[in-house]
Design a protein around this nucleic acid. Structure first.
Length: 152
DNA sequence: GCCAACGTTGGC
DNA sequence: GCCAACGTTGGC
């Protein structure tokens, strides 16, 4: 089993939104970056755990945990001209973009702010904290996962 | 709203 | 294949 971090803007889709979905499950559509897509498509497995990160908001940070319940399949929003994620180069034959389904697992007692992650020396090598990293999906090592859980 | 740090596009 | 221009992300 692997660990991941996935970013979402809470104004658009928050951890509470995920929890309130039917079966607390939602498909993670709209990923339009090849590196992030490749990790979803090739590496994310059912049962993997995910830190749900809130970005572009007053206090960015980790809100809680979700898990992967369905492995990658075509992201239909890429083929829908009405969608904000529409991509004219995607087709049924070549879907180009993929998504996984994630399910709510738990919400932390408090949001763990980015500022605290940055201040923790044990997390200095974490991808999230590396300068210039803007990936919306990134791997988390087991050590990092445990370290973060101990800080909540 | 600013801006650094990318990623993507497209002319050549 | 190079690279300038442009668009996006996301913290601050």
């Amino acid at each position: 089993m692997a660990y991941w971090l996935m970013k979402s803007e809470p104004d658009t889709f928050s951890l509470d939104d995920l929890r309130s979905r039917p079966d607390s499950t939602e498909h993670w559509d709209g990923v339009r970056n090849y590196q992030a897509r490749n990790m979803m498509r090739d590496q994310m497995k059912r049962g993997d755990k995910v830190f749900f990160y809130h970005s572009s908001c007053p206090v960015p940070g980790i809100a809680g945990i979700a898990k992967v319940v369905r492995e990658a399949y075509p992201d239909g929003s890429a083929q829908n001209p009405e969608s904000r994620y529409y991509d004219p180069k995607a087709s049924a034959e070549n879907p180009r973009w993929f998504m996984v389904d994630v399910k709510f697992e738990r919400k932390f007692k408090r949001l763990l702010p980015l500022s605290e992650l940055k201040a923790e020396p044990a997390l200095a090598e974490m991808t999230l904290l590396k300068k210039g990293n803007r990936l919306s999906i990134m791997p988390v090592s087991e050590d990092e996962w445990q370290q973060i859980l101990s800080m909540v």
